[in-house]
């Protein structure tokens, strides 16, 4: 039995501890946010935030995050009340197919939470392991920049 705390809700799950977290989140808990893109920690689409850090859930055994605070894209905000970074993506219309959004949004959020004063170049560096094959890069970086600025001025 593995205790998991996801998006503020506690679960106890009967899963094999070696199972990558991604499958537990998407299959056992039915969350839409983290998605299988590569299973190799190469793309970011399975990203979730664990204790404030963005991690790639395809490559982390569920047993290693028992009791941690896990946030997925589903848990950040709602369509009616999006989190400010989600709102920035809506304002900038920063998506095409949207499949990569967990990696893009959560990697940026976790980074800016830790480095609120980061400049454009540092943000880009932080995003260097995240892929978007629709190449919405320009808008996404603009959305992240907008969120960073709002966060600093708040």
């Amino acid at each position: 039995m593995i205790p998991l705390k996801v998006n503020g809700t506690a679960h106890t799950l009967d899963v094999e501890p070696q199972t990558p977290l991604l499958y537990v989140l998407s299959d056992d808990l039915g969350l839409n946010g983290p998605k299988f893109g590569c299973g190799l920690a190469q793309c970011g689409s399975c990203t979730v935030i664990v204790n404030g850090r963005a991690i790639r859930s395809c490559s982390v055994p569920v047993g290693s995050v028992a009791n941690a605070e896990i946030t997925t894209l589903d848990g950040l905000g709602t369509p009616e009340n999006p989190h400010p970074i989600q709102k920035a993506f809506i304002d900038e219309q920063a998506a095409q197919c949207g499949f990569c959004l967990s990696g893009v949004v959560l990697t940026a959020k976790a980074f800016l939470d830790q480095n609120p004063r980061a400049n454009e170049e540092q943000i880009r560096q932080a995003m260097s392991g995240v892929l978007c094959r629709c190449f919405t890069h320009t808008r996404m970086l603009r959305a992240i920049g907008r969120y960073a600025a709002e966060r600093r001025n708040a």
């Binding site: 299959d27 839409n32 905000g77 989600q86 949207g98 499949f99 959004l101």
Partner: peptide, 27 residues
């Protein structure tokens, strides 16, 4: 006009085929 589907996409409310789960489903 901004895309009507984007708020659902960015808050993970939109269900992709990858998220589809039907009763009795195997893998």
């Amino acid at each position: 006009i901004g895309r009507v589907d984007l708020p659902d996409m960015v808050t993970a409310r939109l269900q992709y085929v990858h998220n589809l789960r039907v009763p009795g489903m195997l893998h």
